[in-house]
Design a protein around this nucleic acid. Structure first.
Length: 483
RNA sequence: GGCGACGUAGCCAAGGGGUAAGGCAGGGGUCUGCAAAACCCUUAUUCGCCGGUUCGAGUCCGGCCGUCGCCUCCA
């Protein structure tokens, strides 16, 4: 069985074969950094994160590029989002960009999203963008009007091949007034003239201005991944016009195919409707993380297929929280038994067999267009098998326990990112906490030996009030923090 | 209006011609000093609706209904 991916370009599942054996070159449209990231970003970037993690798990060397958009995205008013945000917060545009770039990485780190190999900023690649625009002008795919440069969609017959739109069907100027100077309503800006009061602007062959909204991705993807590369990822809502324009610009400029596989992620709604500031239902990642552990947020996202839509509800979030907790409980119990053992030799045959079967189910699911819900199911089923051994009083050998732990570590940890390497609390403060809890539990054990249930229960209850859940297992008491 | 996605149990969600994965919640048990955790059993004669193809259809075809998204900055 080998990896199959759904390619939006062909609208079908295809065997995945990178251009260069063993290497994958991948680009994903990154955020515009003018505000804190929300759970919609989380869905997209966690989904892409798992794609990258799985490719690496399969042994590919992946170069993952994800841009930071810090210029060029315009509001309806024609105003740059960054410029507007800067005015709102009374900071320099680049200061605003810095604030929210840091915030973005902070959130992604917290969610366990592995960092891209390169996070290029649009504002740092103005020369590359200008070069590409020059090429497009030279080749006759673009035209200049009074300091503005537009891409001529009629010159590129394949325009629409990704999104399935046809130029003729595009309704001209639904809300934004059609600019007189454009030859065709669907033509889009490559470079826009900036008035002197516009803060974000650069010199160009066409005078002072700033790049249009799609050109950065074309220029940076080409620069770091080559003219043709393997995977382009992004949110489905950006398929048109953004992704479509990227293809047009890039292929017109280079004369070569742009991305070979398009992997697009379905959108997220909250309680059935799209998040928007006007509705006031935007859930920031930072707020979600206050209520739910990162593994639970990832589990919720991965419990549905990446291509489909997802509706975020508190109920679904809770279900994910409880589900991932069960997985954690199993792994914690395995590690507890393994604590003082030296795992040498081979796992017991029947254990190895069960592990192999579930590993196979997991990889088969992932090979089928990253079917994380099915992969997750394999993990849950494995957890049940392991729990049966654990609670059935079976004396698993250290080698078996280690093999179980490794399986969860690799599939649940390395690939899905929902099982941390350390489930016991870590860090200086938490080490102190851990020490204190151990002391209290030792005292409680004294009470329990003396069958002083009243005192024993009181300790457990009071710990529970602090969110510390005590469990009396055959191998001794354990505890965990519950939110 | 055009384009697209989706509609499977109380909730989330796989499955895409061969007789409904998994998770959460609920019910009943086992274990426990009591719990918790865990395990076992249980919860869709049925997959939005109506037709059609087929020996056989959540699964394919046609129509209808509904939800959401995009077409305009958005991940």
């Amino acid at each position: 069985m080998s990896l199959t991916v759904y390619n939006y370009l062909t609208r079908q599942k295809e065997p995945f074969e990178p251009l260069e054996p063993g290497r994958v070159y991948m680009y994903v449209c990154g955020p515009t950094v003018y505000d804190h990231a929300h759970i919609g970003h989380a869905k997209l970037y966690v989904a892409m994160d798992v794609v990258v993690r799985y490719l690496r798990f399969l042994g590919y060397k992946v170069r993952y590029v994800q841009n930071i958009t810090d210029v060029g995205h315009l509001l309806d008013t024609g105003e740059d989002r960054i410029v507007k945000g800067a005015r709102r917060e009374r900071v320099e545009p680049m200061e605003l960009v810095e604030i929210y770039t840091r915030s973005y990485f902070e959130d992604m780190d917290a969610l366990g999203v592995v960092r891209p190999n390169i996070s290029p900023r649009a504002s740092c690649h103005i020369p590359e963008q200008i070069e590409m625009i020059k090429t497009l002008l030279e080749k006759g795919y673009a035209y200049e009007v009074d300091g503005n440069v537009y891409f001529s969609v009629e010159k590129f017959p394949e325009y629409g091949k990704l999104s399935g739109r046809k130029v003729e069907e595009l309704e001209p100027g639904a809300r934004v007034a059609v600019r007189e100077e454009k030859r065709h309503p669907a033509d889009f800006a490559l470079w826009k003239k900036a008035e002197p009061e516009h803060i974000l602007r650069w010199p160009s062959p066409w005078g002072w201005g700033y790049p249009g909204w799609h050109i950065e991705c074309s220029a940076m993807a080409t620069k770091y991944l080559g003219e043709t590369f393997d995977i382009h990822g992004g949110g489905l809502e950006n398929i048109f016009p953004h992704n479509e324009c990227e293809i047009a610009q890039s292929e017109a400029a280079t004369g070569k195919p742009f991305a070979r596989y398009w992997i697009l992620v379905g959108s997220l709604t909250v309680d059935g409707v799209k998040m928007s500031k006007s509705l006031g239902n935007v859930i920031r990642i930072k707020d979600a993380l206050k209520r739910n552990r990162p593994e639970a947020i990832r589990t919720l996202i991965l419990s549905a297929h990446y291509r489909g839509p997802m509706d975020y509800t508190e109920k679904a979030m809770q279900a994910a929280e409880r589900g991932v907790e069960r997985l954690h409980n199993t792994v914690r119990a395995v590690r507890l038994r393994l604590r003082d053992a030296s795992p040498e030799g081979e796992p017991e045959p029947d254990v190895a067999e069960v592990l192999d079967a579930h590993r196979r189910a997991f990889t088969e699911a992932m090979d089928d267009d990253f079917n994380t819900p099915r992969a997750l199911a394999a993990l849950y089923e494995l957890a049940r098998e392991v729990n049966k051994w654990l609670d059935g009083g079976r004396d698993l050998t250290p080698a078996s326990l280690a093999a179980i732990d490794t399986t969860f570590r690799e599939l649940g940890g390395q690939v899905l990112g929902i099982i941390p390497d350390k489930l016991a609390p870590t860090g200086v403060e938490e080490e102190t906490l851990a020490g204190l809890v151990e002391i209290i539990l030792a005292i409680r054990e004294e009470y329990r030996k003396a069958k002083d249930w009243a005192r024993s229960d009181e300790l457990r209850d009071r710990l529970a009030e602090l969110g510390i859940v005590v469990e009396d297992r055959p191998e001794g008491p354990t505890w965990r923090l519950e939110r």
